[in-house]
Every structure is written in structure tokens, then in C-alpha cells.
Design a protein around this nucleic acid. Sequence first.
DNA 1: TAACTTATTGCAACTTGTTCGCATTAACAA
DNA 2: TTGTTAATGCGAACAAGTTGCAATAAGTTA
Lengths: 124, 124
Amino acid sequence: MKRRNTPSKEAVLDLLAHTGKAMSRDAIEKQLEVDIDRATIYRVLNRFCEDGIVHKIVAEDGKQYFAVCITSDEKKIPDNHFHFRCTSCETIECLPEPVHFAVPVGYTVERINCVLSGICKDCS
Amino acid sequence: MKRRNTPSKEAVLDLLAHTGKAMSRDAIEKQLEVDIDRATIYRVLNRFCEDGIVHKIVAEDGKQYFAVCITSDEKKIPDNHFHFRCTSCETIECLPEPVHFAVPVGYTVERINCVLSGICKDCS
DNA sequence: TAACTTATTGCAACTTGTTCGCATTAACAA
DNA sequence: TTGTTAATGCGAACAAGTTGCAATAAGTTA
Ligand SMILES: [Mn+2]
Ligand SMILES: [Mn+2]
Ligand SMILES: [Zn+2]
Ligand SMILES: [Zn+2]
């Protein structure tokens, strides 16, 4: 199951990397100049997730948002980080704020999904 | 718009209070001995949320879960708390763990939705 | 108690987000 | 250039949640 390079993959990843924010399939499809099928976009994104290139966030609107994983030392987003969803401009961004938590004994945490929502600085 | 007491409301609230966990409409409908319509359950739950009796959590499965708000001093669940979703028994519970966070200047947080997922102590 | 107002319910239709099946296309290795 | 099969497009399917509307019933008033 070796991955192949395609225009669709490149276009989606370029867009995600360029905006630097988490985007929904909807937003991605709208912002892309090329026409890519709904199902294809989801498949591309899910493959990116499997490969650890992007990560998925589920917001309180129940929708999935995808953002590239930043590993470079410059921007430095911790592994477990909060996300901020602006209810005004409908964007989601990864915050540099790490999530600290403790769980009762016997519990094992495998994944986290933390979203703060409100108004971002551009909208306030 | 004064609220009225109905068997449906009572049944749903009883169930939620009794289990003490966050439940989806699906789970609520299954566990109820009485038959209540899907739409009615959602309307009942959303009214409870408006009234501050229960709160809603959206998990990474994109589904809504509802749990009674615990205000009593005994159990004492903080306002902003983490939730734990066991991917094995498919339950969600409110953790007594408060969520601490900081956002960049200019950002205003209005709501939070934090879900940790993994294996609970009963399933491990 | 009986009459009345209107919150609540059930049902069906609808919306939206996501996935799936399948035939077709195109990466890329041989 | 050929062959293998990952990736795509399209439509259908699926799931969660909402909405419109007529029928029901809670609770108020007389
Ligand atoms: Mn992120
Ligand atoms: Mn809770
Ligand atoms: Zn904003
Ligand atoms: Zn469990």
C-alpha cells in the first residue's frame, strides 16, 4: 500500500500548509481553485492523518477539521495542544498552549480533543 | 414560554441522573423502557441545556452527549472539566479534573469542549 | 368541574457531514 | 512500453440532528 503523489494530494496539502489553520472539507473544497470530489478530499485527508502529516480535530459543531502537524522548532506546537474556534470567522487554529491533565488511576488516555471557542483577536 | 412537566422529561432526566454519565440520544433511547421519539428526546435534552440542568459534550465521534450538571458539594465537578470517553465501553464521564488554559491576548473564550479518550478503569 | 391556552409530542421529511461500492484513471516500478 | 494497483469521480448510502405541522395534553382560569 505505497502512497502515490497526485495533484489532489498536493493541492490539499499546499492549501492546509499555506493557511496554517485547521480547515473543514467544506472550506478546503471552496478555497481550492481545482475541483476535487468530496469523497476524494476526505480520503486524501484521512490518508494524511494515517501518515501523521495532519491531525484531525472535531469541534462542537460536530464537524471534522484538519490541520498540518507543525514539528519545526520555530513555530513549535506541542503534541497535545488546545484549539481555538472563533465562532465569528468560523476558523480553527492550533494554540501553542499545551494541554495538562490528570486522570483517575486505572484510566489510560490515548487521544485528546480539546477545543476552546469564542472570539479570536481579529474578530474582537 | 413556561416549562411543563411531562413523562418524557422525567424519564430522560431520571435516566441521566441515575447513570451519572454522559449519554447520547441513541443510548438514552435504548435504555429507556418507554418509547420516546428521537426528535422529542433531542428537544427535551436541548431544553435541559437551556435551563442549565444538563450540559452537552461533543466527542471525537462527532456525536452529542448529555450529562446532568453536578453542583452538589459532595461530587463537586468544576465548571470547566475534562471528559473521558472510553473507546471500549463507549461511555463518557465527567472528570473532576478542571481544565486550565491560557489564550493569546485578544482572544475571548466563551465555551470549552475537552474530551480525553482511551480505556477506562472498568475496561482495562 | 369544564373551557381554554399553548407547551409538548409524534411523525415524516429534510439537511448536512461523512463513508462506501465500483468502474475508470493514472502513478510509478519493472 | 507494459503491468500493477493506488487514487479518483460519481452516485448511493448512512448517520446525526433539525424542522414543519397537526394532534395531544399540562396547567391555568373561570
Ligand atoms: Mn492542532
Ligand atoms: Mn461534564
Ligand atoms: Zn475570528
Ligand atoms: Zn470503559
